[in-house]
Design a protein around this nucleic acid. Structure first.
Lengths: 330, 330
DNA sequence: GCGCTCTACTAGCGCGCTCTAGTTCGAGTA
DNA sequence: TACTCGAACTAGAGCGCGCTAGTAGAGCGC
């Protein structure tokens, strides 16, 4: 920076002003300085900038690398953060790299706030985190911690899906659980409630699972084995999420089960996977873009006004009927 | 830090020494300082630390959020970087956020080197980047730029796949191209060469596509339409990558085509998708872990020895035969 | 008692930037 | 002409740490 200043014949302060796009520099000088900087190959050093102004204007995002819905969220986080003048740093949790480690990395890189996508950490740890910094949880409610919370109204989504299936004449509707996955508990509860409301409690069945393709494949196998053992297939399955629905579809289709003629499948998320199948996956749309925007806004607003209390945003999901759901067979 | 020093009754320098785990502090003092720091809630400020020592020991990774193989690579990058004492920062390219922007973000966060996963940027830009910093390209060769390069021997992989198919009796083998995707050109060439080598040049057919599920679905539709118009289906398809193979499988299976009885499908990458299908995808395994390790090591070694020239690592891929390939029908 | 070494510690500069409180100068105003 | 005012620019402190060069004092052999 000193070099640029010297070569352009101005003070360092003016160079600083120009690079911050601040008023107070003549048009001509501005251009000259920028040209010189370009020649020298000067780029402002963010570490020093950070240190000097005491703020990083950076948001950290913790996500799980293999969750497709997270990548959809990230796609929405970037533009909204940029709009508000913030940088985004990503830190992935993988097998072999815990969420705690991922979060630690973000903090040590001076993120002012962290956005956690479907965190699975111990609530106590999250609370400790929330005391140190501004934190936003997406998809997972953590009542014990002072965090903002963005999610969709799981109950409403499941209810729409169930009403849709019942309207199509389905009664033997099975739910594949999402285990400890974010939103699973709510979805499970809503499934049970819907079955009860439609007078189908005797048919209600929750099969334990996860939010992964593997889980869908396994459940598919299980159902097929049961069929071979004499128990009829359900006529509809409400999967824990889209990935699970995908796995299930692959397993069933592979075995000659025609979806939706023989069996209907409904997913959850409307991640970009849903459009892939030639017939399209009927699923409950969580608006990733909108969720991302809320998460970013919550974080930023709490950064700018420290008195603000953590908030909760509940977005209405919407059933998207595509090709994997149809009238009950027969 | 000054507070800690004051409260513990020592100098700031000693606190610094203790927090860097350096020799030169008494055991007793060390404990006292750490205790005091904990009470105050002091955490070393990485921006200042960075500024003072002039090195960040941070690697930046640019990836495409929706590419499953990239997430596999990331899973391998983290542990290797940690082993070598480096931090990792992720920056994703998405629709609406170009690679250039993603890379810019990494640099401005003071990454000492950038690892680019399947970069699709203009070679000239990459070269400009390579002059500014240490850069490693994974999967995509950029001969014009001073970057390290890690890839698998596409030719060998394709050859193994083709030999496998020909051994099974296939002759009408189609290749779905990966467009501008990394490795596509090499795979296409190797496909053509293999067809020629087996005396099948008349049967050779390259269908333009991309490294996405959508592309697989589209190609599936195309092939089915052609079949309905009287042109026989190929007996085997070599897809551009696993995602493409997945899309193809969904489209075909959906239409009642039995894989592998009626048609064999071979993917490329062995991303975690490959294990999902009940029968498993026959694919060419690129060892993501090993590729990740090489990429990290190249970057780090060039950082520690500035004289080092960019290098190239070619890893041998390996055909993994699973359930989607079988003898030619009839 | 002396010089020597070794451990434990400290003073203070500098990393590259931002920001406050100025100074300079030319144009506008009474 | 004398004064004000705003735009353009500058000096220099300070952000929180790392590091070099140094000091104080204890322990040791002779």
């Amino acid at each position: 920076m000193a070099d640029v200043a010297a070569k352009a014949g101005v003070s360092r302060a003016l160079v600083s002003i120009i690079f911050r796009n601040q008023a107070g520099a003549g048009r001509e000088t501005r251009e000259r300085v920028l040209r010189v900087a370009d020649e020298i190959g000067y780029r402002p050093d963010s570490a020093a900038r950070l240190l000097a102004r005491g703020r990083s204007r950076t948001l950290g995002v913790m996500f799980t690398v293999h969750q497709t819905f997270h990548t959809d969220l990230i796609t929405g986080i970037y533009p909204e953060a940029e709009r508000l003048g913030y940088d985004v740093l990503l830190s992935g949790a993988t097998r072999g790299r815990s969420e705690a480690k991922a979060i630690e990395a973000l903090l040590s890189h001076r993120c002012e706030a962290v956005i956690l996508l479907g965190p699975d950490a111990d609530p106590a740890n999250l609370d400790a985190l929330a005391r140190r910094t501004v934190a936003v949880s997406v998809s997972r409610r953590v009542p014990q911690a002072r965090v903002d919370f963005v999610h969709s109204a799981e109950g409403k989504g499941v209810r729409q899906a169930m009403d849709h299936l019942v309207e199509l004449g389905h009664r033997r509707i099975v739910h594949i659980d999402g285990g400890r996955g974010p939103g699973s508990a709510e979805r499970r509860r809503a499934y049970r409630a819907a079955m009860r409301r439609h007078g189908l409690e005797d048919e209600a069945r929750v099969i334990p699972g996860h939010h992964t393709e593997e889980s869908g494949v396994e459940t598919g196998r299980l159902l097929l084995d049961e069929r071979d053992a004499g128990r009829p297939l359900p006529t509809a399955v409400l999967a824990g999420n889209d990935r699970c629905a995908m796995g299930l579809l692959m397993a069933l289709t592979r075995a000659g089960v025609d979806v939706p003629r023989d069996l209907s499948v409904v997913g959850y998320d409307d991640s970009h996977l849903s459009h892939l199948m030639p017939i399209g996956l009927t699923t409950v749309r969580q608006d990733a873009l909108l969720m991302a925007e809320h998460a970013v806004r919550f974080a930023v607003e709490r950064l700018e006004d420290k008195e603000l209390q953590p908030r909760e945003a509940v977005l209405d999901p919407k059933l998207v009927v595509r090709g994997t759901s149809g009238p009950v067979p027969g």
